[in-house]
Design a protein around this nucleic acid. Sequence first.
DNA 1: AATGATGACAACCGCACCTCT
DNA 2: CAGAGGTGCGGTTGTCATCAT
Length: 315
Amino acid sequence: MGRSPCCCHDAGVKKGPWTEEEDRALVEHIQRHGGHVGSWRNLPKAAGLNRCGKSCRLRWTNYLRPDIKRGNFTDDEERLIIALHAELGNKWSTIATHLDGRTDNEIKNYWNTHIRKKLLRMGVDPVTHQRLPPDDILASAAGAPGLSEALLSAAASLGGLNNVLMQVQALQLLLQTINGGAAAAGLMANNNFGSAADNNAMFNARSMVPNFQDQMNLLAHANYRPVDDYLNNIASFSEHDAVQQLNAASSAPAPTAAALAVPASFPQEVAAAADRPVQGFADLLSEANEMPNMCSLEDDRFWKDMLAESSSLPL
DNA sequence: AATGATGACAACCGCACCTCT
DNA sequence: CAGAGGTGCGGTTGTCATCAT
């Protein structure tokens, strides 16, 4: 099973982008043979192409084949890719067999340029499809070389995220890292869901709940559905993502006062905190939200200011 | 307007596997 | 069974367009 030498190493064989003439020669040659290629190695000479046979095969299978579907991936296709990737991993060719007209190369590129980044923004490991471990993030913030890719991605994306809930998640992770999570609640004011008073109630209450899951539960009590756990069930991701997109895009009614009421099961100080005016990140974040490009890791001042604000939040 | 940075996509590279002799 | 030819596959790189400075 030795590896055969590739004709691509031949001197004078052209590489790089294909011209229209080359495409036409390749297509006409294959059509002349009824769509059958025979030997790819012999094809270039027969077709009058100064190309490696391998290059011809790639060009045909990934671009010139008549049954290839061009254009953007649909939502359904994206969901299918994610689900299949969770099951199959980087088996691009196998994944491609489930999507009509899509090539493995196209799917692979789409994954690397779109889906992977989207998952990272949501705090999801695109390899394991699980939530990225907090230790990873904490270690990164402690000065370990190489800030966590997830944190970097989340932080760099803060201003551009079109989904408030993603912002919340990203900032939660960031603040847990920076400040032990104590200030994270203030960030929740940047949500556009309800009135300022409602936000005060919700977010001050949240600040009294140190545990991330408890915070999420409190939000859930107020009819928020921010972090349904895709991470524990990859099959539900597509729907979850779709719901998130809908939530972000829709003009969903603000939660009612009743919905925002602190549940009786929460400690008394939580209820008390609900009446305190929110401070800290709210203004900062809403300002950032209006100017998407101001948030980036390169903008040291932003993070410096945010750190300063976080330290002044009431606990 | 020029230049650098970034993102998206096409194409290449090298290894592994399958088939045939 | 071994080895060569041919192809499939996944990772990586190159190229070009667009955006930011």
